[in-house]
Write a protein that binds this DNA or RNA. Structure first.
Lengths: 335, 335
DNA sequence: CTGAAAGCGCTTACAG
DNA sequence: CTGAAAGCGCTTACAG
């Protein structure tokens, strides 16, 4: 019933707890013979070290906290998969929280993870987050921090992102090359760094190609399918319709796609469409969606590796490097 | 830098650690005045109780372990989302591991979580798992256990499943009603209880409708898109082609779908297709896939609730109830 | 109403 | 090569 402890082993072996502990950790002071006896007994009694007690002693656990807006979202669950892979290989376990894109809940998540004394945190901030005090608190508490995808520029920590500006720029240039001239953008919320960068890429592409930037063609909104639908609806109400839409991400692009289809508007003949992320389902619809690939799994692996690296450093020499992974324009039939 | 401790507060307030601890936990013995002073100081110093120390003392943590075959898989990530919701509301944090459908890794996952002294575990077993000793070990260690979706019949614990037999039975009856007679089944692996139940439902539907059960129409395999492709390929190599395929789950159905399309085989005219799970992308393809709805989010919530309930009980009175959620046949154009 | 003491399961500096 | 002691940050039975 109860877990076997070091003390149990010590009593059984007529040794001290210190010696058993050292034998278990293969300390050079302990004789081969004693080690063998201890190891044999540990195996026999199915001894499993109590990581909680170890963590308390070491003032640091083997857990890594992960905070994402929503676990059930292909992009984030794929990132988490990548994080878990790397963490597992390094002997760490991940604690996963979702903020539900709520700033308040994100704060509670960081508190819960800090209270659990995680060694580090990997976080992708909520849509509402504009104040970063909770992230600074984490750092002051000596918890390593790496931001990914939805990062906060102002927070001086390692970040793992993709080249959002370039991804957007390339996507919009492609539309222009294809002959589209009235290109709208469903832009997400201006709070988020990724959204600003993608929007800047969009605007730069227009500017570099001597096309006007029209305010009515830029619609702020959320990151889900519904936001794509409502955005598309607003665009279709304009007197001068766009001939192409660049969406902040694939869920939004999908919302646009479904809405346009319901309205009987041909893609790409009446309106072309480009998304961002390369979620698997962009390949399933007809016409298939042109999108910008974001290597989700690799983002997870990279962020986790970066965190592990920081864990090995002292609190003073935490890296603040920003790692930018490449995007790739995936040409398909929606543009 | 360092976290504030109860002792720090005690020194600052010239009280004993015991009193501070009691005040923080709102113990009735402590005077209102003292409580207020303690609370004020705790707030000022941003005191966060060390959950690790608490867990060691209480011999039980506020963490729940979750093991799934693969995090990035719509079904499982949705279940995890549901689990997190319920756990969060109850003040628990989840630790998530993926077995990658490897029996060995699943064992290591249970060990890691047990070493972390999680209060309970929610697990969906790997495709390879046929020996359940590791699950029994967990229970012997006093860790509450609830299995979901991929359960092991023999393990005497709470389980949350859907009515797989009925879901399959209904789906196949529907095909028969539609006039299909040569219905094949891509059946997953016989180790898994869910697979056996779905296959039994399939066979019962044929039998009840006086149709022959043909061995060459039942193909064992895995649970991914590739398995759907290879299964479809095998079926197409038969001299007598099936006129409908019932796939073990949606990823497999999707693989079939894509393979048939590549081969220029019309769905449902040449071959009809039905999946299982109602993953979001079954609605995106054309023709849309008929499938059996499995309430993934609700499975997660229910399993988590059941675990919390067991956590409240003594180790002797753990429920072994099996909760069966209803499935629903979602009729679409692929059948 | 408050405090001293012991203990949860481990680790490690110190002694021998 | 091994052990006794102290301590990580808490909680709680016992005493006063």
């Amino acid at each position: 019933m109860r877990h076997t402890t070091i003390n149990d082993l010590a009593v059984l072996l007529k040794l001290s707890a210190s010696t058993v502990s050292r034998a278990l950790r293969d300390h050079p002071d302990i004789s081969r013979k004693t080690k063998d006896k201890v190891l044999a007994m540990a195996a026999e009694k199915n001894y499993q070290p109590n990581l909680i007690a170890q963590s308390l002693q070491n003032r640091r656990s083997n857990n890594i906290g992960v905070i994402v807006p929503e676990i059930r979202n292909t992009f984030f669950s794929t990132v988490i998969s990548g994080i878990e892979e790397v963490a597992y290989e390094a002997g760490f376990t991940i604690m996963v929280c979702q903020s539900g894109d709520s700033y308040q809940r994100e704060i509670l998540n960081t508190r819960a993870l800090a209270a659990n004394r995680v060694a580090g945190m990997l976080v992708s901030i909520s849509q509402e987050t504009t104040d970063y005090a909770h992230l600074l608190t984490i750092m002051e508490q000596g918890i390593a921090l790496v931001l990914f995808d939805r990062v906060a520029e102002q927070v001086p920590v390692s970040k793992v992102i993709v080249d959002d500006f370039n991804g957007a720029y390339t996507a919009v240039c492609h539309l222009i090359e294809k002959g589209y001239r009235r290109i709208a953008h469903l832009a997400g919320s201006p709070q988020l760094y990724v959204s600003r960068k993608r929007r800047e890429g969009y605007e730069a592409a227009l500017r570099d190609n001597h096309l006007p930037i029209r305010a009515e063609y830029i619609i702020a909104g959320g990151y889900h399918e519904e936001d794509g639908r409502s955005g598309a609806q607003k665009l279709l109400a304009l007197s001068r319709l766009p001939d192409a839409i660049f969406a902040i991400n694939d869920p939004v692009a999908l919302g646009v796609f479904l809405y346009l289809q319901e309205q009987g508007i041909a893609i790409p003949d009446a309106i072309a469409l480009v998304g961002f992320s390369n979620n698997p389902n962009t390949e399933l619809v007809r016409p298939r969606l042109t999108t910008v690939n974001q290597p989700a799994f690799e983002i997870g692996r990279t962020a986790a590796r970066q965190l592990l690296k920081n864990l090995a450093c002292g609190p003073e020499q935490q890296s603040t490097e920003t790692i930018t992974l490449e995007t790739e324009l995936i040409l398909r039939e929606s543009s």
